[in-house]
Simulated assay, not measured.
Amino acid sequence: MTLPNNPESPAPLILTGGRVLVEGGPTDAAVVVREGRIAEVTTQPPTGQVLDVGGRLVAPGLVDIHIHGAAGHSFEQAEDDDGVAAILHHLAGRGVTTVLASLASDEVDTLAGTVRALHRHRDRPLPRAAELAGVHLEGPFLAPAQAGAHSPAVLRDPDPEAVATLAGLSPAMITLAPERTGASSAVDRFIAAGTVVAAGHSEAREDDLSAAQAAGLTHLTHLWSGQSALVREGPWRVPGLLESSLASTGLTAEVIADGKHLPPALLEIARRCLGERLIVVSDATAGAGLPEGSRYALAEVVCEVRDGVGVVLGADAFGGSTTTLEAMLSYLHAELGWPVAELFAMGSTRPAQIAGLGGRKGRIAAGYDADLVIVEDDLTPWATLVRGELVQP
């Protein structure tokens, strides 16, 4: 494969010889890329530099809105420019073209400093690397009983001062526990700052979720992971956050589909309950791409790559995943038989919309960023375009 010229060149790049996954499904067409954007999808392409994709599928680049790191590096080490670059280059080679950098719970001042450092990378996208579109704060306003891989020592209520500090940085997303004191006010403050608010790592009950949703909460973080479940109070069944999530109206939700976090039956339940509101996230960590036995950290929590997943040392909990998003779509396609068009909606179109990027990411249409992944029949990436620049795995 010959790499194309600079995407700023006036000569367009023409992707031909394959099927293009547009809104109505795969179609025989060419994609014309000019100056980093999709110029058109057409059966009569203009003259330009041609890349024959050899019958493969051209799909929208993947958008991962919940990922902590990869390739031995973590977004928490935001001052390490080379480390952040290594993550973003690693992901681009796997078809992931846009991410929200997720941060595990930490002290508020530490999180604030990390967000500022990551915003430098957001504002200066790297060539041939996934675009860091913003920051996802996974904490610190979480429930200790559902801490998972978060350090209980740093979890806290969303008091006005802490919320003002973090909301003032306008993170793209925050996950919080709706039952914590001050949660509804915090939701309101973050929504005003342009932040998507999600419920997660929580002991919430139905009323807690309803109150947070009324305040503006719109998303649910990794179903079945860090969610309270059904309890009995005498003879009465009281739904937890999990059941309230599955029965919700209007909320979007995510699953980690690495074949480790959730068995197939639970993935099928999520799909049937949420339908077009369900997305896939990787929750990948620095352990993604590392060999068995490798150790890595989520803030102050030490984890290990074990049996194809991350586990918290000394605890009965997963420590994020060690699988990137493209492999999750392959798993869902090969093992569960989910349709390709639906999978790219879950892994690209819908997450882009949730993150407020749906006007330029997640679709193959004129005017959108030329973020594309060209995949084999098993959905393994053959090549990726990030803003019109070709990246080979």
Rank of each mutant, 00 (worst) to 15 (best):
M1Y: 06
P4F: 14
N5Y: 01
P10M: 07
L15H: 10
R19L: 13
E23S: 15
G24F: 07
G25N: 07
P26F: 03
A29F: 07
V32Y: 12
R37L: 13
R37W: 02
A39V: 06
V41A: 06
Q44E: 14
P45A: 06
G48S: 14
G54N: 14
G55W: 09
L57M: 10
G61V: 04
G61Q: 12
G61W: 13
V63W: 14
H66E: 14
G69S: 10
A71P: 00
H73S: 14
S74M: 07
D80P: 10
D82A: 15
G83P: 08
A86N: 11
H89N: 11
H90Y: 15
G95W: 11
A101D: 04
A101N: 03
S102T: 15
L103V: 10
A104W: 01
D106R: 11
D109W: 01
G113N: 11
L118N: 10
L118T: 03
H121A: 05
A129W: 08
A130K: 07
A133D: 06
P140V: 03
P140D: 11
A143Q: 10
G148P: 02
G148V: 09
S151Q: 05
R156D: 05
R156F: 04
E161H: 11
A162Y: 06
A167G: 02
G168P: 01
L169Q: 09
T175C: 00
A177Q: 05
P178H: 03
T181F: 04
G182W: 08
D188L: 08
A198F: 06
A198N: 04
A198M: 09
A199N: 07
G200A: 03
S202P: 09
A204N: 02
E206F: 03
D208H: 12
S210Q: 11
A211Q: 08
A212V: 03
A214M: 11
L217W: 08
T218V: 13
L220G: 01
H222C: 02
L223P: 08
S225E: 12
Q227T: 08
A229V: 13
V231W: 10
V231T: 15
P235S: 14
W236Y: 15
R237E: 13
L241H: 12
S244D: 09
T249Q: 11
V255Y: 06
I256H: 06
I256Q: 03
I256E: 01
L262T: 09
P263I: 08
E268F: 00
A284H: 02
T285N: 08
T285K: 06
A286C: 07
P291E: 13
E292S: 06
G293C: 04
R295H: 12
A297G: 02
V301K: 00
V302N: 00
V302E: 11
V312K: 00
L313Y: 01
A317V: 09
G319P: 01
G320L: 03
S321M: 03
L325W: 07
A327G: 01
A327L: 15
H333R: 12
H333P: 01
H333L: 04
P339C: 00
E342R: 14
A345V: 12
S348Y: 07
S348E: 03
R350Q: 07
A352S: 13
G356H: 14
L357R: 10
L357P: 05
G359M: 01
R360W: 13
K361S: 02
A370T: 10
E376V: 00
P381Q: 09
G388R: 04
